[in-house]
Design a protein around this nucleic acid. Structure first.
Lengths: 158, 158
DNA sequence: TGATATAGTTCAACCGGCTTAACTAATCAA
DNA sequence: TTGATTAGTTAAGCCGGTTGAACTATATCA
């Protein structure tokens, strides 16, 4: 396969350029919210998880249950998360975003890749069309990949 | 322009899928190194800056000079960074990566987007070729963009 | 030369995340 | 029912990043 090498190189270059910029924008945004990175990551997990139990946050952040509990606690106090009992098992607390929390996360996602808007003007219509098609294929492949790898290895919980 | 809308949508979707996965891989990697996020970000800044003064780290991380100094100090003690006087201005300390530090950063970059290697097998040769071409154009555009926007706004330094 | 500005360091204090350990409450299994 | 397991909380303490303030040393400007 002659194309795999150049393909991976192109993907790698783009990933590096893209990540570097996006991560910085993201961290700057998080700082403006007054939240810590762990706190914001907690919100992100809940956002993508569509609400989840505490244990999922624990394994996602790779911290102890105590740490996750305290993190959530702070976010509840700020009015960004809500805790409620799950009906199927009253031990688990179902954690969901408030409207305020959701807005915060969505602005974060926006801030993270907002700079890519500036790319649009630098490309011709033909380029945009071809690139959009390429990205859709990549995104689809990545999502399939993610759907397969079911879940992260849980922490040893020493 | 009918394509700009769909282009930005495609870019946005990709960015979200990609960032979510990459950031998690990256944070997991950083954790394995035993370094904190601020410490690792310091290394990254020096890596991409090709060696730089402390003040650049200060503005990049958006912290006070005291914080940056201490961060660098810890990394020097771990043998990841080196400090030396700049010859053109003996006030500034030129900060560079040691071989060990460089290796650590490069493994981090690898860990961040290493999962994308799994995408290769899910695409046909034609797709790979088209996508590679598209990504190269994107990367080039992004780099040009970056080259223009010269530097970040410095912190108010209250 | 002297005054001011800039680059960086050190120190004390603070804050917040993280951990361990002990605990409550609910569920499951024998 | 009893015992063990699981989900989550609380409290004490540690560690490390961050800050403001005081300081040194070099550079710049008049």
């Amino acid at each position: 396969m002659p194309t795999t090498k150049t393909f991976q190189a192109a993907l790698h270059d783009w990933a590096e350029t893209f990540m570097r910029r996006s991560m910085r924008e993201w961290m700057r945004y998080v700082k403006t919210t007054g939240l810590s990175l762990p706190q914001f990551n907690t919100l992100m997990k809940v956002y993508y998880g569509g609400g989840c139990g505490l244990s999922e946050i624990t394994s996602h952040l790779d911290v102890t249950a105590a740490a996750a509990s305290q993190l959530v606690d702070g976010l509840v106090q700020r009015g960004l998360l809500e805790r409620s009992e799950a009906e199927h098992d009253r031990r688990v607390k179902h954690i969901t975003l408030t409207a305020k929390g959701r807005a915060l996360v969505e602005r974060g996602i926006e801030a993270r890749s907002g700079w890519t808007k500036d790319l649009t003007g630098r490309l011709t219509a033909e380029q945009r069309e071809a690139i959009a098609a390429a990205l859709r294929q990549l995104t689809e492949a990545a999502r399939r990949l993610e759907a397969e790898a079911p879940e992260l290895p849980a922490r040893a919980n020493r």
